[in-house]
Amino acid sequence: MHVENLEKLYKMAEKEIYALKDFTYTFTKGKFYAITGHSGSGKSTLIRILGLIDRPSKGNYLFNNQDVTKLNDDELSDIRNKEIGFIFQEFYLESEMKAYENVMLPMLINPEINKDEREQRALQLLELVQLKERANHFPKQLSGGEQQRICLARALANNPNYILADEPTGNLDTANEEIVFNILKKLSTEGKCVIVVSHSKYVLKYADYVLNLKDGKLEQSNELK
């Protein structure tokens, strides 16, 4: 993932607000990136642009060496489905689907995973996040930590190379926070690129790089030993 001079401009009435400005960076596979900064510093905007949910107002974005700024909705959706796994603070789970069905959801439109494999794969992923025994539970029957782990399993459904997380532990207690970060760290060591926006100080314990944003600009970028 390589972004260059990224800009995101919001026009509100007569005012122009830069949520992101002159952001240039390269994210590589096998690394854990922590993005920090105050509220309104542009962290979530960056994650949404990196995840192809929003388009930048200006700048270049190469995803797997492909310029994604000119792709249409179908093409972007296809990349999101196969290459990117998302985790958000608000979970975004289908309330009327069981845990394993929620995990299967991204697989339904991925022709590379056939129908018979889906359920088995979902159960394997639930095992990875230590929730196999809760596979048949609905989200409302699960705790916040468990719901977030379901989201994590769902993010891995199509074995994406990139995991993007926006405050994934914002609603979790310390124990669950640790479980989530441990799994994310493990995924990065297995070769995935993990980018986490977080206010939590614990994230620095797991991250390889920390990027600090201020007023939409990259203020500092450090490699953590």
Partner: peptide, 12 residues
Amino acid sequence: FLYRIIGYSSKQ
């Protein structure tokens, strides 16, 4: 938004 993040297009 849920369907968007997991890769469903507007058409789907």
